[in-house]
Design a protein around this nucleic acid. Structure first.
Lengths: 105, 105
DNA sequence: TTAATATATCAATGAAAATTGATATAACTA
DNA sequence: TAGTTATATCAATTTTCATTGATATATTAA
């Protein structure tokens, strides 16, 4: 018995993207980083000092989140200020909601 | 500078649970399984034949999703029929939405 | 009660990704 | 310019977890 939802061509791409988003955020440290940045833009040092993580580790997670478009950054003097990219987060949240909610296909 | 969101005691548990949910679903095969089951309850064989995955691999993913409460199962003759546990999925979706949306704390 | 089918479990392997340590770069400050 | 601070990068290690192969269990059918 062939089931509909897995037959569509465009489904693969959609599902791949959704999974990339889930992989990007399914990590406690990244969730904490997102939580901190929800309170407003912060420099890297504010983040790693609050989370009690090493500087390079936080830098690595920030890069991953930024590369995926969930964060933005800008230089301010010697600091790099990171902030949430709300538009993209909303986009992926919406996509996930549609995907997991009942009877959307 | 101490940032509010990471100081709360109950936050740890909430964030841990949320992350467990994200880890449970951040896998292409599991997303495909969820998609198939959204179309209705299915036995294990329907799933692995559709996804062209090995039987034991599908069984393993089904177990993970069920252990986490995202799926239910019941025996029907020699088959085990899996289905979505909508309540739990909605619960976690809601939690994730609140967590990631702007200014919820 | 034997064979066949459906599903689950378990140990071993492999791959992806987090973490660490060391170092590089860039911007301030004295 | 030299020293200091903030951040990024890179290679090595470790951890986590999906996948595989083999086998066990449970149900049905002959």
């Amino acid at each position: 018995m062939k089931i509909k939802c897995c037959q569509r061509k465009e489904f693969d791409k959609k599902l791949f993207d959704l999974n990339e988003f889930l992989k990007a955020v399914s990590d406690e440290n990244r969730l904490r980083i997102l939580c901190i940045l929800k309170s407003g833009p912060r420099c890297v040092c504010d983040i790693w000092e609050n989370l009690e993580l090493s500087q390079n580790l936080v830098s690595h997670h920030l890069k991953a989140l930024k590369d995926f478009g969930l964060l933005k950054s800008e230089r301010s003097g010697s600091n790099i200020i990171y902030s949430i990219n709300d538009n993209n987060i909303d986009k992926y949240l919406k996509s996930l909601n549609i995907f997991l909610k009942k009877y959307d296909n």
